[in-house]
Design a protein around this nucleic acid. Structure first.
Length: 469
RNA sequence: GCUCCCUUCGUCUAGCGGUUAGGACGCGGCCCUCUCAAGGCUGAAACGCGGGUUCGAUUCCCGCAGGGAGCGCCA
């Protein structure tokens, strides 16, 4: 049997970080077993489904390169199929029409809760003789009333449910559209899904869906219910924990592989290993190793991982995303050094590509934006002459390389009778406008001779002016 | 309220009857150093509680407590 899994989001919002983890595990399971991965959009709720949400899901999966072999299927395009199956169940007596109104249902639920019972449909239309004139009924599934249903969950093990605790789910709404439960079951059956890997918020739905699958005559898939991802405070992951939309992570300058690597380690491990390439994830992942307990999302560790990826990726492979970040920051990538060189110099001092773009902005922006406090502190009158001397020496350098620059600086520092650092920081402030950058020789090399000399010259005039305290 | 699930450092986790309970993020210290990082070394930090089972429980079983999910003509 070839494995076939699916990711079945409902397009009612952006692609959530928890949804991505579910998609990842499902995708990994399929890839690990050489199977198929299906994407299915569960848009049966027409009120809340939007095209924008569909696009966000597609864009997110595409960014992460979680590719599917089939789909995307849209449930709204399969309505006639659900209707057929519904008719069949009705004819076979496995489903029945229910004429209870929402108000009646609600009142009964309230009464049940008041009595300390598990609120559920009481089955009163099960044996109703005829229709109620002028009313469109819903179609309900006739769930077995006794016995036990066992879910052999791939991550939780054996879970038992008393059928008496289950009620009769609605299959078709009074407007003739299918409900989520029915769509899922028909689709999983018809698409030949062998392993249903989803969030554990569905564990309670599983026994009911199993009954429906049997009634429909489909083979039962295996189930694996993944634990939730919580916010850093243990509460349900939401906006106030920071970004929950994957695309925000892209915008923040995270790398898709780092994202996946972080997510795969939430609930799964392979010994002490922290870094997994895509290939390793696929080779090593198995659902048996997945934890049953919920985990918290830790943005700090994600950043650390992202930097690990930044440091180990070929700079050229990061160039496109870096340039994209520059443009987002309103900078022109063509106005500065080659992206790969900047990445090379900065990747161990930033955690994200966005931070990189911010840190390296001085390379692309003209005129320089300088920090006043840094100028006051480092561009003192005393440093004026050495700076001027350095400018002269650099101006006559045969070739603009970091070693040549470094030698010139060493010589000027010696002439001035100061340590390298006493010269380095003022130069850094002069050319970057701040106190933080890669090694100063590398920084100057990156900037290029023209800009470096021009900024040095301006700094010299600053040291001689009243601008300095 | 009812049903179901979960419980190892602050966090992510390793562990699958006998370990000085390991690693990683974060945090502290030291080293390196022109700044910031990165890196190296190092330190503090955990088996929720109570019963069993067993020669022996972090590990198996049962309670309790705490946390979570579900209980819609939402998905």
């Amino acid at each position: 049997m070839t494995v076939k899994t699916r990711f079945a989001p409902s397009p009612t919002g952006f692609l959530h970080i928890g949804g991505v983890r579910t998609a990842l595990f499902s995708w990994l399971y399929a890839r690990h077993h050489g199977g198929q991965f299906v994407l299915r959009i569960e848009d049966t709720d027409r009120e809340r489904s939007t095209q924008a949400a569909v696009n966000a899901i597609l864009e997110g999966l595409d960014w992460l390169r979680l590719d599917h072999d089939e789909g995307p299927y849209y449930q709204t395009r399969r309505f006639d199929r659900y209707a057929e199956m519904a008719d069949r169940l009705l004819r076979e007596g496995k489903a029945y029409r229910c004429y209870c109104t929402r108000e009646e249902l609600e009142a009964r639920r309230a009464a049940q809760v008041a009595r300390g019972e598990n609120p559920r449909y009481d089955g009163r239309c099960r044996d109703r003789a005829g229709p109620v004139p002028g009313m469109e009924p819903v179609l309900r599934f006739r769930t077995p009333t006794d016995g036990v249903t066992v879910v052999d969950d791939l991550v939780r093990g054996r879970v038992e449910f008393q059928n008496s605790e289950l009620d009769d789910l609605i299959l078709m709404r009074s407007d003739g559209t299918p409900t989520f439960h029915f769509g899922v079951v028909v689709d999983d059956g018809e698409m030949g899904i062998t392993h249903v890997i989803r969030g554990d918020d569905h564990l309670n739905n599983t026994p009911r869906q199993m009954h429906m699958i049997r009634a429909l005559g489909y083979p039962l898939p295996a189930y694996g219910h993944l634990p939730m991802i919580l916010g850093s405070d243990g509460a349900k992951l939401s906006k106030r924990h920071g970004a929950v939309n994957v695309l925000e992570y892209r915008d923040e300058g995270f790398l898709p592989d780092a994202m996946l690597n972080y997510l795969v380690r939430l609930g799964w491990a392979h010994g002490d290993q922290e870094i997994f390439s895509r290939e390793e994830m696929i080779r090593l992942f198995d659902i048996n190793g997945v934890n049953a307990s919920a985990s918290r999302f830790d943005g700090e560790k994600l950043k650390w991982l992202n930097q690990q990826y930044l440091k180990s990726s070929p700079p050229d492979s990061l160039a496109g995303a870096f340039e994209w970040q520059l443009r987002r920051a309103g900078l022109d990538p063509g106005a500065g050094p080659a992206p790969a060189a900047v990445i090379e110099a900065y990747r161990e001092r930033v955690a994200t590509l966005r931070e990189l773009a911010e840190s390296a902005a001085y390379l692309y922006r003209e005129p320089l934006q300088a920090d006043d406090a840094a100028i006051r502190k480092h561009l003192t009158p005393a440093i004026g002459p050495p700076l001027a001397l350095l400018a002269t020496r650099l101006g006559s350098l045969a070739s603009w390389t970091r070693t040549g620059i470094h030698d010139a600086m060493t010589a000027v520092a010696a002439d001035a009778g100061i340590g390298f650092g006493k010269l380095g920081q003022p130069v850094r402030v002069a050319v970057t406008g701040g106190t933080v950058s890669p090694p100063i020789d590398v920084t100057l090399e990156l900037l290029g001779r023209d800009k470096a000399l021009q900024r040095l010259g301006r700094a010299v005039s600053l040291t001689g002016s009243g601008a300095v305290a």
